[in-house]
Every structure is written in structure tokens, then in C-alpha cells.
Amino acid sequence: MNQTTSDKQTIVIKVGSTLIAPNGRVDRKTCLPAISSYINQCFEQGIRVVLVSSGSVAAGKHFFSNETPSAIEKKAMAATGQSEMIATWDSLLHKPCAQILLTQADLQERTRYTNIKSTVNQLLDNGIIPIVNENDAVTSGQFEVGDNDNLSAMIAACIHADTLIICTDIDGLYDKNPHTHDDAQLIKEVKTITPEILKMAGGSNSNVGTGGMITKLQAAQKATEHGIDTIIVNGKKKESFEALFEKVNPGTFFEAQGKPLQDQTHWLIHTSKAVGELIIKEEEDNKIAVNARNLDFRDIVEVNGEFAAGDTVLIKDVKGKKIAKATSLCSSCLLNFVNDHQDENTIMESALKQGPIIQKTELAIFAPTL
């Protein structure tokens, strides 16, 4: 571990449900004092901290009698538990706290995404700790991020954080499941997240949280590709946080990429969800058209999904290979109409006059491995 958070200006700390409310109630005594003490020390040393805190559903569970809650009951639990969770952090942290509840829709739309960055920085500039969580009380379907591991990486990228710390209930990434293999070895450092590394992640062993090790690796990949060092640590151990300040790696350290993705490209690949697909002809000329950012109506053979102009779409060839993600300048309705009338010269000539159908400045070409 070459750097620690002591050398950094802004860090994002993600704390999972298993640490906050392991038994359906907020646990103020086991893990939270050490985590909050670390955050307090960071601010004392001039390090800015954003806290991404899970636990609203778990914290609200004890207010409800149903042992197998429905989806809508879980939303009610989230609404109830969120206030208790915020109150707990507010009582443990030495700085005032601010609540930020987000959905995928907030991250999807560029203006709202930019507003998140501005609001978080304004809070930090005024010595206030932003506490971020997914808005589980209202979100569902395509507007759902799904887990706070990935949300924490999106927030870290959004605000250009230096370090992402993911607190969990084991020491880090192991080469095999440590719960079922006595010979499992902790991996101390990962320079590049390869397919082999991803295969090491098993499912979650907790019935409390929504993210297992795979979501933590996904988060680490998002963060490191934005130039953000990422550390998975055992949040149950006070020594983990002591080690961070002593410049000792207490878990698994993921090294930031030396050449991070540009902001717009990173947002398209890792944050914005594609709501539709454009299938292009399997010809070299069309792949060149994508790379040259001048894809037009003639290149499209199929349109999947319903989307509006300005939405993110996935571009694939006819064999299903992912080529790029882009912001569409046309709705699926218009694209389907023109595609259905390609033999009519007047309609095609009118369509071609509109120029490219993708936003040239908002296109991310996938690497061959994706």
C-alpha cells in the first residue's frame, strides 16, 4: 500500500447493513464507534469524508411484525429505519450531518448528476458530513442502483474522490470463500481487476445486506478506472482504522489506474444505465462509423426498447457483441419509423439531413474485453 487516507484530501467510506443493523436494529456499540471515530479523526486532520451508509431497511425491520416482508413493506421499513440510522450517525460524529437520498434516475441525468457533485462539495466546504444512501422508500426497477457498494463508487467518481474505503464483515478479498475453506488466503493487493479476480468473488453470506464480494469488486473496478484507490477492510475491527493511519494496509488494496477514464466516458460506462439498444450491421464500415462518431440511420438494422432523445443506449452488432454506449439524439419511436420506411427515399433523405444519431461528445467505445 503506497498511500493511505492520511495523504488524501477526499475519501468516501461505505458502511454496509451487516455493520449497522445486524439484528434488525441499529447497533451503536459494536462497529459504529470505531468507524465514527475514524471519520472524526479524518476531519481533524483536514481530510474530507463522504459516508455512504446502508442499513435503512435493516434498521426499520423491528418496527414491523411480518418476518417475510413484501417489496412495499421493505420500502416502509426503509422510510422508518432511515431516520434512526441518520440520528445514530449524527450522535456519533463530531460534525453536522446532511442526508442525501439518491436513485439511479438522479445519477442517470447529467444535470442532476452534476448537482450531486456541487451539493456534496458545498457540504464538505462547510464542514458538514454528507451521508448518502439509495432512496429505498421510493425506487424500483430501472431507477434502482441495487446496492451501496456500486453507489459508493459512483459517488466517489462523481466528486473526484481520492480514496474509496468499503467496510465489510471480513478482512478483504480471499482467493476462495473463507467461510467454507480453511486454507483461504487473503489477497493483500490487486493492481488490475481481471476476470480471474472477479471469479474469486462468491455470493453474500449475510441475509441482511444486498451486496456480496462481487459488488465490492464491481465498485473497486468503477473507482480504480476513475483513478481512485480502493480498499476493502473489516469494519468490525478497530485495528483496521488504526492501520489506515499508520500507513499499513489492513485489508485488500486496489491500485488506481495510471490512465483513468475521462469523466464522460466513465459516467457512460459505469454510471448511466442503457435503456435501449441499437443493433448495427456487422460490417467493418459500421464499426468505423461508431469510432468516427458519425453513425446515422442507414447503419441501424434493429432498435430494441423504448427511449427518448437524450437517453443512454447500447450499440451492438448483429451477433450481440457490445461495441459502445452512447447518448441517442433520437427517440426509439423516430428510429423505428425511419427504419420501417428505409425504402422510401423522401423519408430517408429527410432523416439523413439530421446527421449522426448519437451525441458525438457522449460516446464510450468498449475495450475488446468488454
Score class of each variant (00 low, 15 high):
G127D: 11
I128S: 09
I129W: 03
I129F: 01
I131N: 04
I131D: 02
V132N: 09
N133C: 07
N133R: 04
E134P: 07
N135F: 10
A137C: 03
V138N: 01
V138E: 08
T139D: 14
G141T: 02
G141N: 14
Q142H: 13
V145K: 03
D147Q: 11
N148K: 11
D149S: 10
N150E: 15
S152W: 04
S152N: 05
S152V: 11
S152H: 13
A153T: 12
M154V: 11
M154W: 10
M154S: 07
M154F: 09
I155H: 06
I155F: 05
A157M: 14
A157H: 09
A157Q: 14
A161C: 08
D162N: 15
T163F: 15
T163M: 15
I166K: 03
C167Q: 06
T168Q: 01
D169R: 00
G172E: 00
L173E: 00
D175H: 10
D175G: 12
H179S: 08
T180K: 06
D182M: 03
D182F: 12
D183L: 00
D183G: 05
Q185C: 03
L186N: 06
L186A: 09
I187A: 07
K188M: 05
K188C: 02
V190S: 10
I193F: 05
I193W: 02
P195H: 06
P195C: 00
E196Y: 03
I197M: 00
K199Y: 10
M200Q: 14
G202A: 09
G203N: 07
S204P: 12
S206N: 15
N207D: 13
T210R: 15
G211V: 03
G211T: 02
G212A: 02
M213R: 02
T215E: 03
T215V: 11
K216A: 12
K216C: 12
L217C: 09
Q218R: 13
Q218M: 09
Q218Y: 10
Q218S: 06
A219W: 09
A219V: 13
Q221F: 09
Q221V: 02
K222L: 11
T224S: 13
T224W: 01
T224Q: 03
I228T: 05
T230F: 06
T230C: 09
I231A: 12
I232R: 04
I232D: 01
N234S: 05
N234L: 06
N234I: 07
G235R: 05
G235T: 00
K236F: 10
K236E: 12
K237V: 10
K237H: 12
K238E: 15
K238I: 11
E239Y: 03
S240V: 02
E242Q: 15
E242V: 15
A243M: 15
L244V: 04
F245S: 07
K247M: 07
K247G: 06
V248Y: 13
G251C: 07
F253T: 11
E255H: 04
A256W: 07
Q257W: 08
G258W: 05
G258Q: 13
G258N: 13
G258L: 14
P260V: 02
L261H: 07
